[in-house]
Design a protein around this nucleic acid. Structure first.
Lengths: 176, 176
DNA sequence: GACGGCATGTAAGTCGTTACATGATTTG
DNA sequence: CAAATCATGTAACGACTTACATGCCGTC
């Protein structure tokens, strides 16, 4: 069973309790989405594949006449999740247009560069705000998900302070 | 002229001076690659497209019998780069398997979780080391590229300290 | 009864990487 | 002279997103 990008997300989410594909998507969008997104186009086909592989089991649990399949981890699925968790692979990919613009900001005059840094800071402030929204939800659960949330909050804070510092330096230069 | 992902990289790199596609790729791999990668499969077709659009101009500059095309920005290309730099778009995408594993680390026992955090720290230490390698090169140029490099260094440092703190907490728990 | 949310699913398209092909030049 | 590097290019593949299709349910 090859793992695709969405595989560990599904196994991990199902370990927190039985869920439908729709439930998984909604939870991902409030949690891992900040560092690991997942779309319907990945989730639904992968649920089928994981069931065929025996890592999860689906059970029909309709709401009235509306069909709904709730999946849960099998022991094999639990083992596969654990294996992935302790495996050495730790891929990291970043695509940050703010950094890219800043990298080329020598092509801007000081006022424009200052505007850019302010815009970058605003982006991180939005990020912090979005994380703050889900903070109370994560706090009551505690554990590692909450640990990761606070890490993300601190990360945004780090960038915001870095922006503010750079802004001060650019403002200082402007007075010359 | 629609911008693709690789467009601003090429325009930005050419603004630093005339270069071949090969030069661009090599420079990217030592600089923006940490937050914005680019492959040959993107660079060469895009150079053709940008030339057709009049944003860059290529001139044949062979090394002996080995063909080589050096491109430079046209005024229109310079304008397009500037327009992109001051545009509000600031996309941000992160795919961090370390965070994902940590998010699901409640499925691990303390010793395994500790191992995971140590592995995550090791990853950031490698990142810091790779940036340190190019630091002297960037330092002499100074300007915004150096600014971004130091930002990256500080970012890795931030994560390393965060890991160390979490490791201490997990080690403390283990003694119980 | 219209609209938003629940629920599943897929087709088409975008984007990017990998791997290879080709051939010249430099270096040990 | 073999291997590494310079240099250009593309075909195939893989991964993910977007958009849509379908239909049920609750509520205003």
């Amino acid at each position: 069973m090859e793992f695709s990008g969405v595989t560990p997300v599904i196994l991990g989410m199902l370990r927190l309790g039985p869920r439908s594909g729709y439930d998984i998507k909604r939870f991902v969008d409030k949690s891992t989405r900040f560092f690991w997104a997942a779309s319907y186009g990945q989730i639904y086909p992968e649920l089928k594949r994981l069931e065929r592989a025996g890592l999860i089991e689906g059970e029909s649990d309709p709401t009235g006449n509306r069909r709904r399949v709730v999946y849960k981890l099998t022991p094999a699925g639990e083992a596969a999740l654990h294996e992935w968790l302790v495996s050495p692979s730790l891929s990291y990919e970043l695509r940050d247009e703010g950094f890219l613009k800043l990298f080329f900001a020598d092509a801007l005059d000081r006022a424009e560069a200052l505007e850019l840094v302010r815009a970058i800071r605003a982006g991180y402030e939005r990020g912090r705000a979005r994380l703050s929204e889900v903070e109370p939800l994560a706090r009551e659960r505690s554990g590692f998900p909450y640990e990761v949330l606070r890490w993300g909050l601190a990360l945004n804070q780090f960038h915001i302070e870095r922006c503010a510092e750079l802004e001060r330096r650019l403002e200082g230069e402007e007075e010359k």
